[in-house]
Amino acid sequence: MFLELKNIRKSYGEKDYRTEVLKGIDLEIEKGEFAVLLGPSGSGKSTLLNIIGGIDEADEGTITINGHILKSLSKKELEKYRRNHLGYIFQMYNLIPNLTVRENIETGAFLSRDPLEIDPLIDVLGLKEHQHKLPNQLSGGQQQRTSIGRAIVKNPDLLLCDEPTGALDYTTSKEIMKLIETVNQTYRTTIIMVTHNDAFKGLADHVIRLRDGQIRKSYYNDTKIKAEDLEW
């Protein structure tokens, strides 16, 4: 098993303000799988993603990725783990404002011992014409494509996407989903995507539905639909 979560619990706040966000999550994800975490706002999707990504810590439970137990890793090892194995895409693109599209992608390549070729990737991302532009000269979709490029250029084992289309319009969202689909198929990258858009469940191999910090439903699609056929 590539990723295994056992009894993950997480709370925020103290005493009267304490809120239990995750209430014992058990989950398994295979290598190369495209998993979608669905659920309404406040269901704990992003928190779970951040815990898998090692940027937030569970109060209880264990996470095993590729044989490594996250909890047992030191701060430095965790840093190394993120550096070598993870790619991150956020709803907000968080691009470096004074680096060009290409240079922003290079910030990901810099971290990897075996990065993807940048030029073909820029082609795949459809950013060839924009590669020398700064982020504030791009549309939202182009910025998100850049952030995807930055995440996948290091050829990660696991790509974590937190509402990657949350700030985009319909057409652009579809383009981005096509891109994520391509990444999954081309590079066999395991993808976990958090979304509240129910329509995306058809894209995934594995659908996990969360509500109130618990997995209400977890199932595998026998047949997937293509990103270009998505409608919502």
Binding site: I55, R82, G87, N94, I96, T107
Partner: peptide, 14 residues
């Protein structure tokens, strides 16, 4: 802040 967060999340060291 958010750029730093993204870079750290991506694996940049402090």
């Amino acid at each position: 802040m958010s750029v730093i967060g993204t870079l750290l999340a991506s694996g940049y060291t402090r």
